[in-house]
């Protein structure tokens, strides 16, 4: 079928090219998270995860985590080839239990942050980040 340039661009306009990842990787992420919590349940709330809804580029995605009272926060990219991203261990001179960084996401997926609180309990937050593939040669 022949498309004129206008039609080609019109088709392209508004279309999102997305990388969708298989479900199998979720299992690896669950395992990694269970290892961190020792199998304990993580409560929702008490931890904030900030990530863009749509990442302009999967190579450099800015994210932030904050969990007042936490001793450590771990970030997981549940859809990446290996789910672990970073572990922040807060020392006595940390003014807040918060940090920002830039991460790589292989495709659209759920990013999860787990916090280990000072009292030994765990808190969890998650965000779905859509990772788009650019149009002009990607």
């Amino acid at each position: 079928m022949d498309f004129t340039r206008r039609e080609t661009l019109a088709l392209g306009a508004g279309a999102a090219a997305m990388a969708v990842l298989p479900f199998q990787v979720q299992a690896a992420a669950d395992e990694a998270m269970a290892e961190f919590t020792g199998g304990a349940e993580a409560a929702m709330g008490g931890i904030e995860l900030t990530a863009p809804e749509i990442a302009e580029n999967g190579n450099t995605v800015p994210v932030s985590v904050s969990a007042p009272g936490a001793t450590a926060i771990v970030i997981y990219a549940t859809g990446n080839p290996t789910p672990g991203v970073a572990t922040f261990n807060f020392g006595p001179l940390a003014a807040s239990q918060a940090a920002s960084t830039r991460i790589r996401l292989a495709g659209t997926q759920e990013v999860v942050a787990l916090a280990k609180m000072a009292d030994g309990t765990f808190a969890k937050a998650s965000a779905t980040v859509k990772v788009t593939i650019g149009g002009c040669g990607g």
Partner: peptide, 11 residues
Amino acid sequence: MKFKAMTAIAA
């Protein structure tokens, strides 16, 4: 960065 072979493109 490596994209898996099962990457599907939703138009």
